[in-house]
Amino acid sequence: MAEIKFSRDQKVRLVAEIQRYFDKELDQEIGDFDAEFLLDFFSEKVGGVYYNQGLNDARRLLDEKLDTITESFYELEKVTEFD
């Protein structure tokens, strides 16, 4: 799996979101460095789980769509006396 990377803008927004969470839910302030460190830690240690779940969800959706397409082909078939 490729390393999970964020654009600078994404990272800034995610760090701010982590800081808001700590402030609101834990009544604790967390600095930019600590929030970015926490983001990097979770990206490395937990990110793959979310990534794999996304792949599994996409695979399942694709399988469902392909089943529908396959069924549509059968519906288009003409009955002939040569079948």
Rank of each mutant, 00 (worst) to 15 (best):
G48F: 03
Y51P: 02
E71F: 02
V79N: 01
E25G: 05
D32W: 09
S72P: 02
S43W: 02
A2G: 05
I30Y: 03
K65S: 05
L38I: 14
E77Y: 06
V49T: 06
V49D: 03
V12T: 15
Q19G: 09
A2L: 06
G31A: 10
D34Y: 09
Y21L: 09
S7F: 03
T70F: 04
T80G: 02
K11P: 04
S7E: 07
S43G: 00
F22T: 03
Y50L: 10
Q10N: 06
F6Y: 12
L66F: 12
F42H: 05
T80P: 05
R20A: 10
E25A: 08
V12W: 11
K5A: 06
F73S: 01
T70R: 03
N52F: 07
D63I: 09
A16M: 13
T80F: 01
F42Q: 00
I30M: 15
E75H: 01
Q19T: 12
G48V: 04
K78I: 08
D63Q: 11
D34V: 14
N56K: 15
V12F: 14
D23H: 14
S72E: 00
F37S: 09
G48H: 03
T68Y: 01
D83R: 04
G48W: 00
K45L: 03
V15H: 07
D67V: 03
F6P: 00
R13G: 02
S72N: 06
S43P: 01
Y74S: 02
N56G: 14
F22N: 06
R8E: 15
D63H: 09
E17L: 13
R13H: 13
A35D: 08
F6K: 04
F82I: 12
N56H: 13
R59M: 12
K24N: 08
T68A: 04
D57Y: 13
R8V: 14
Q53F: 12
L76H: 05
A16E: 15
Y21C: 01
A2S: 10
Q53A: 11
S43M: 00
L39C: 04
D67F: 07
V79D: 05
V12D: 15
E36D: 15
L38A: 11
F33G: 11
S43Q: 03
L76T: 00
E17H: 11
Q28L: 11
K78T: 06
T70E: 06
D23K: 15
I18F: 07
I30N: 01
K78F: 05
R59Y: 13
S43L: 05
E3I: 03
E77M: 10
E3K: 04
L39P: 05
D23F: 13
